[in-house]
Design a protein around this nucleic acid. Structure first.
Lengths: 194, 194
DNA sequence: TCACATCCGGAACCGTGATTCAGGTTCCGG
DNA sequence: CCGGAACCTGAATCACGGTTCCGGATGTGA
């Protein structure tokens, strides 16, 4: 019954090159999907990684799974940014976070649609939202943000951010910075919520 | 050589029911694509219209063509809104236009991505941009908009609008109104452009 | 270095959905 | 009311891309 090291802690120490290939695939997927959108054929991902399509399926159960892995990573990055921002004790964390979110999303263009949208990932999205709420509270407390502006408003700004990045990726990859500048003005100015 | 009425002005006066069906198809397409996205099968469009798939191809060269027709119509609506807004002589046209654009886009959810994006439609998009420029100028002239905020900024707002509508269509279909409220604040407050 | 478990490549397989086509049907002018 | 052009239908055709599979290559432990 009690094997020496049977625990659920050792899924499988992946063979050295297998690990490398997995990495290559994720990297290629991020590049290709980010550049040409999620509808790009898996074969393109494989080719970009310099591997065969079969290899993808050795590492991921399906194309959707591959994408999930990518989005998960994206979520993690956002979550970490939020955590970092929460460390600031002067109510400025919210603004740091917005900018960080912009950078992350700009880096991952084609994946954005799956980020907020998908009915899956609900848990992670909820977690991020909660953190945003805390950032908003902190900002309220330190008068960095008027009380009339709430977390839903910040979410609106983030949703808009996606639209801006998608639309301007080619011509003006930095447009989102100006967008956030304007958004910041709006949030700080605030107004009675409907 | 010179026939009696050979002119290029009479493509073909579509038979009565053919015209009706064409209408039904466009209507169904707007509904279905708007509701379930552009990746929905043409068969669904046909079924919704109560017609066969073949009929679609009698009226449109391809699915892409059908979508183009829809987007064209969308463009027209936006263009008309811009024209209407341009009639206001007190510099408030820009704000009317933003709201009108929001309404139009909210009504056509699933088609939005093709609106600004697609490399095609360039001419029409250019035309709309030109009109926005004029609206911005008028606003500048009447001090409704600070000089530091330009047409590119308005475009950013519109791009963001799309993101907001897409992300909130299900839960909060009216979220875009609050978004525009905030956007208006930002634009009116303005700030030195980068 | 040997034998084996893992892994990889990429052609074959399959389902999905756009597009075409061979009839039957419906309008329209006379 | 007729003949024929214009239309419509929906099953068949085709292309595309995800997924599977098996022979061959490669890393690993002894």
């Amino acid at each position: 019954m009690s094997g020496p090291a049977a625990g659920a802690l050792t899924p499988k120490p992946l063979r050295q090159d297998a690990a490398r290939n997995r990495h290559l695939l994720l990297e290629a997927a991020r590049t290709v999907f980010g550049q040409d959108g999620l509808e790009t054929a898996v074969e393109d991902v494989a080719r970009t990684a310099g591997l065969g399509t079969g290899t993808i399926y050795r590492h991921f159960a399906s194309k959707a799974d591959l994408i999930t892995a990518l989005v998960e990573d994206l979520s993690d990055q956002v979550e970490i940014s939020a955590d970092t921002a929460l460390l600031k004790k002067d109510g400025s964390g919210l603004w740091d976070f917005l900018y960080a979110a912009g950078e992350i999303q700009a880096r991952n263009q084609g994946l954005l649609c799956r980020f907020w949208a998908g009915r899956a990932r609900a848990a992670q999205v909820a977690s991020i939202r909660a953190k945003i709420s805390r950032l908003v509270n902190a900002a309220h407390k330190h008068k960095t943000l008027p009380a009339s502006v709430g977390q839903p408003d910040v979410l609106l700004v983030l949703h808009g951010l996606r639209g801006v990045i998608e639309a301007n990726y080619e011509d003006r990859p930095d447009a989102w910075q100006r967008y956030l500048e304007l958004a910041t003005i709006a949030l700080k100015a605030g107004s009675k919520r409907k």
